[in-house]
Amino acid sequence: MSVAPDIDVSKAPPGFLWRLVRSPSGAIGLVIVLLLIFCALFADVLAPFDPNKMGSGGRFMPPSGDFPLGTDEFGRDMLSRILFGSRITLLVGAVAVGISLTIGMTVGMIAAFRRGWVEALLMRSTDVLFSFTETLIALSFVAVLGPSLQNAIIAVGVAGIPFYARTCYSAALVETSKPYFEASIAAGAQPTRLVLVHLLPNVMPTMIVVATLGVSTAILAAAGLSFLGLGAQPPTSEWGYMLAGSRDYINRAPWLMTIPGIAIAITVLGFNLLGDGLRSSLDPVERK
């Protein structure tokens, strides 16, 4: 989609939302994510059965008219379980990224703003934590707190902090070295004003992209923990946990393995595409 050079740019609809929708990855990502939010919001209206009710149908019924995605080993309707699972998945993504983002940004901004020994202390500890890798941090947290969905979310959220802190730190560092920032210090701006009015809005675009892509990582990590039995516990219709159970019936009922896997993959793909789209529509260099 190339714009002819003689078109008056001022007439083009402004704003990044338009650019986002016009990029193929952004548009597809946005549609997937919105669809997912819709499923999560209206799961109780859309789902034909109670997701946890056993014997809604026979056991191991292949996909059919009554049960579009089949039934599992307890005769529970897979479609309903997948629909309700979208709530858990979105909740996991939002809360885990929320934890990483708030704490990571606070650490990163303080380090970039205060400099000196505060910066050294914060960023060196971030480096150390970063080399632990997210998996190990998450696993250690679950080992301490015990397996549950709530603990898995906390674990994944905490595990992401070093990465968010690093990214926010480098984005904020770029801002603090710009002339306008030095000018406002010279003009006597208060630290609160510097951080809230100058630093925060300018690191926000970077952090929005990172957080969107981070939702994918968080969902994958939490589903992985549930898959191992260290996250969501029965009878929760969490997708990773559903996949784990499907391994025993891989011969009899391959759809039990296929469907939750596709659900996770599409969700993660949606956030990945949206993140890619956001990056190119928010980044002034790629915008050209």
């Binding site: 992985g224 296929t258 939750p260 896997g261 996770i264 993660v268 793909l269």
Partner: peptide, 18 residues
């Protein structure tokens, strides 16, 4: 590649196993 990144590796494992 982006589809590959989005695919959970534990699911890929199950599919290959199958």
């Amino acid at each position: 590649a982006i589809a590959g990144i989005s695919m959970p590796h534990f699911w890929l494992g199950l599919v290959l196993l199958f």
